[in-house]
């Protein structure tokens, strides 16, 4: 089981994503804004972080920029979780040294697998 922090302000997306991840055996902390996300992440030792770019208080990029300066999170994968156009999302991920991108809307068939690949998890049906 891995600890995942999901920073997502859209309640529908947050519910769906956290439900899928919990069902797959992960522990999930949901933060609805950037400040809450930073508090949750800096107060725990997550195994993976999902950050929406459009947050109501602090931009997602700024949240990632702060996280990338925390030495103890150097090895923690940070994924951009966004509805931005794919090319823009990947450019932002590269610029802000994120490990990957998961585009919204969530595809329930692949979402857990997309997350698992960054955790090194292999599932056998």
């Amino acid at each position: 089981m891995s600890l995942i922090v999901l920073v997502e302000d859209n309640p529908h997306n947050a519910r769906l994503a956290s439900r899928l991840l919990r069902k797959a055996g992960h522990e999930v902390i949901v933060a609805q804004d950037g400040e809450g996300g930073l508090t949750a992440i800096l107060g725990s030792q997550p195994d993976l972080i999902l950050v929406d770019l459009g947050l109501p208080d602090i931009d997602g990029q700024t949240v990632v920029a702060v996280l990338r300066q925390q030495n103890h999170l150097n090895q923690v994968p940070i994924l951009i979780f966004t509805a931005y156009p794919e090319q823009t999302a990947h450019e932002m991920a590269q610029a802000y040294r994120c490990d990957g991108v998961i585009l919204k809307p969530i595809d329930t068939r692949y979402f857990v697998g997309q997350v698992d690949q960054f955790l090194g998890v292999r599932r056998f049906e």
Binding site: D9, N10, D33, G54, P56, D57, A83, Y84, P85
Partner: peptide
């Protein structure tokens, strides 16, 4: 405002303070 933008190309949500 956030409800009007929920499906926008670039959603830019804001809280009350922002």
């Amino acid at each position: 405002y956030n409800q009007t933008r929920i499906d926008y190309i670039v959603p830019m949500p804001m809280n009350g303070r922002r």
